[in-house]
């Protein structure tokens, strides 16, 4: 167990060899938040999308068709599960995998949208996400190459020095998954219908950003 003056003591841990998945008050709250919004995505019905008719005094509302709704819900739940995995993972490589899954599922959430602007934005977001995976996994590779381990538990507290460039790459990779200043396309894809599912796009990226801050300060 570690008790770093960053996030408080570890509440419990599950060792898998040198990889130790753990929960601190900080990671536990992030996990619970991801679980809460995943539950909301399961329980909520989507809103009726209202649009203004420009030049006329009126609005029109639309419902999401059944198959599209089911697919969006499935991808939102997958995104929530990936975010939960990223918040409690004790291994940098696993964190990177979960982060990549968040990027992919975010595209999936809006993939069935019929809106051309949303689909264009999703395409651009997908390109940025794929490019961002290079520094993300590159950072993990540098950590493994220089320290011999990817276990956050082993690296915690500066016991083994992690190169600054590896931390910078990890942050850059996560930012590419939808944080400022690479998130312009992401803001556009939230125009799609299905509030409980679209919200998961924002939830997941904030959670992985919060987790990477904790990781780079911890190691």
């Amino acid at each position: 167990m570690f008790d770093l003056p960053i996030e408080g003591p570890a509440l419990f841990s599950i060792p898998f060899g040198d990889i130790v998945d753990y929960a601190s008050p900080y990671t536990l709250i992030l996990f619970l938040f991801a679980a809460l919004f995943t539950a909301l995505a399961i329980l909520s019905r989507p809103e009726q999308h209202a649009d203004i008719i420009f030049g006329e005094d009126g609005v029109y509302t639309g419902r999401i068709p059944g198959p599209e709704n089911r697919f969006q819900r499935f991808m939102a739940i997958a995104c929530g599960l990936a975010a939960m995995g990223a918040t409690v993972s004790g291994d940098i490589f696993n964190f990177c995998i979960f982060t990549s899954m968040v990027g992919l599922t975010c595209i999936g959430i809006v993939a069935s949208s019929g809106n051309r602007h949303v689909l264009n934005a999703a395409f651009e977001y997908g390109i940025v996400t794929m490019i961002a995976m290079i520094p993300l996994f590159g950072g993990a590779a540098i950590v493994a190459a220089t320290t011999g381990t990817l276990s956050i538990w082993e690296l915690a507290g500066g016991a083994i020095a992690v190169p600054f460039v590896a931390k910078a790459f990890l942050v850059l990779g996560v930012m590419g998954e939808g944080m400022a200043p690479f998130y312009v396309a992401k803001a556009e894809i939230t125009r799609a219908q299905g509030a409980p599912y679209i919200l998961m796009i924002h939830v997941s990226s904030l959670l992985i950003f919060l987790r990477i801050i904790e990781i780079i300060i911890t190691i």
């Binding site: 008050p25 900080y26 509030a195 919200l199 904030l206």
Partner: peptide
């Protein structure tokens, strides 16, 4: 407690703002 947790909550507040806007239609 941890400032990191406090700032995490600040960022999670963004989700509330976002959810408020999306949920009404």
């Amino acid at each position: 407690g941890s400032v990191l947790l406090l700032f995490a909550i600040y960022l999670l507040h963004k989700i509330v703002e976002h959810g408020m806007g999306l949920s009404s239609g």
